[in-house]
Nucleic acid binder design. Structure first.
Length: 271
DNA sequence: GCTTGAGTTCACATTACATCA
DNA sequence: CCTGATGTAATGTGAACTCAA
């Protein structure tokens, strides 16, 4: 019995976010010497080291994860038989065009082109006439993508047949679809990190300012200072900006727990 | 068991076409 | 019409993997 490798449901979108030293270069950038065009590039302009790295599980490693699936071999063997019929080399004998063609060239080439839509003509398909999927085709592809973000060869063949497309086109659609999904998710994550960054920056500025004020207070009023709690004992909740602790050292129950105010996203219980 | 080459699929970057404002 | 922007199908490349020899 064939096992569906996609039953393991690899959620392609498991993206690891990291704030800190950007030492874990993403697989993307490591492999791609020709340029990493992350939408997050230069998002954080100053020295703060804030990296958004897609985990290997989500990018290059998504593949690794998939390959690690135990049921992969069975699928691969079927892919070999099926894939050999529809491998790109079997019908993509098109030299890559480096430049856009002129309209005249295009018309000439058009004569040689065969509609990608017609499955009965697919062997002659050449040129790069771009196919627009019909609404029905797109809808079905989307439905299948919701079920599985990858296809095994059997599914691909069946879907291609249903859609009257070549298996390669179905495969390409899924590849592009995964890329779009990942890009969107990356943008969402970027926005989130941007907000975190801004919040932390603001918090840092506020704390710096507060520190300056406390220092000024300490040196301007040394006598008064003796009666006040030490600046080090004062902490401020970043959420409500109240100064906690210090004032009544005896009432330790009201003093914030250590580390409470380090988290800019939490209120203290006292607040 | 180890090596190697072929075949396949994937992510990713890029190109090029179609459409629209 | 022309043009730039945008969406996306298609292509190229390299890595990871399986399998047979």
């Amino acid at each position: 019995m064939d096992m569906d490798p996609h039953d393991t449901c690899h959620t392609d979108l498991s993206i690891g976010l990291g704030i800190g030293p950007a030492t874990t270069a993403s697989d993307d950038c490591r492999r791609r010497q020709r340029g990493c065009c992350s939408p997050c590039a230069n998002l954080f302009p100053d020295e703060t080291s804030l990296s958004l790295s897609l985990s290997d599980d989500a990018s290059g490693g998504g593949r690794t994860m998939q390959k690690a699936e135990a049921d992969r071999p069975a699928q691969l063997s079927s892919s070999r038989s099926a894939g050999s019929l529809f491998s790109p080399a079997a019908y993509v004998a098109i030299p890559k065009k480096k430049k856009k063609k002129t309209k005249e060239e295009d018309v000439g080439a058009e004569m040689e082109r065969v509609s990608c839509r017609g499955s009965d003509e697919e062997e002659n398909s050449s040129g790069r006439k771009k196919l627009r999927l019909t609404r029905e085709q797109s809808a079905l592809l989307e439905d299948r993508f919701k079920e599985h973000t990858t296809l095994n060869p059997k599914q691909k063949q069946a879907l291609a047949k249903d859609l009257n497309l070549r298996p390669r086109q179905v495969e390409v659609w899924f590849q592009n679809r995964r890329a779009r999904t990942k890009l969107k998710q990356t943008e969402v994550d970027c926005e989130f990190l941007k907000k975190c960054y801004e919040a932390l920056t603001n918090e840092n500025q506020r704390l710096q300012k507060e520190l300056q004020e406390l220092k000024a207070l300490k040196f301007a009023q040394p006598l008064l200072h003796m009666q006040l709690p030490s600046a080090a004992a004062l902490t401020m909740c970043p959420s409500c900006q109240r100064i906690n602790g210090g004032g009544d050292a005896k009432d330790s129950s009201k003093a914030p727990k250590p580390g409470h105010c380090l988290n800019p996203f939490s209120h203290s219980a006292a607040c």
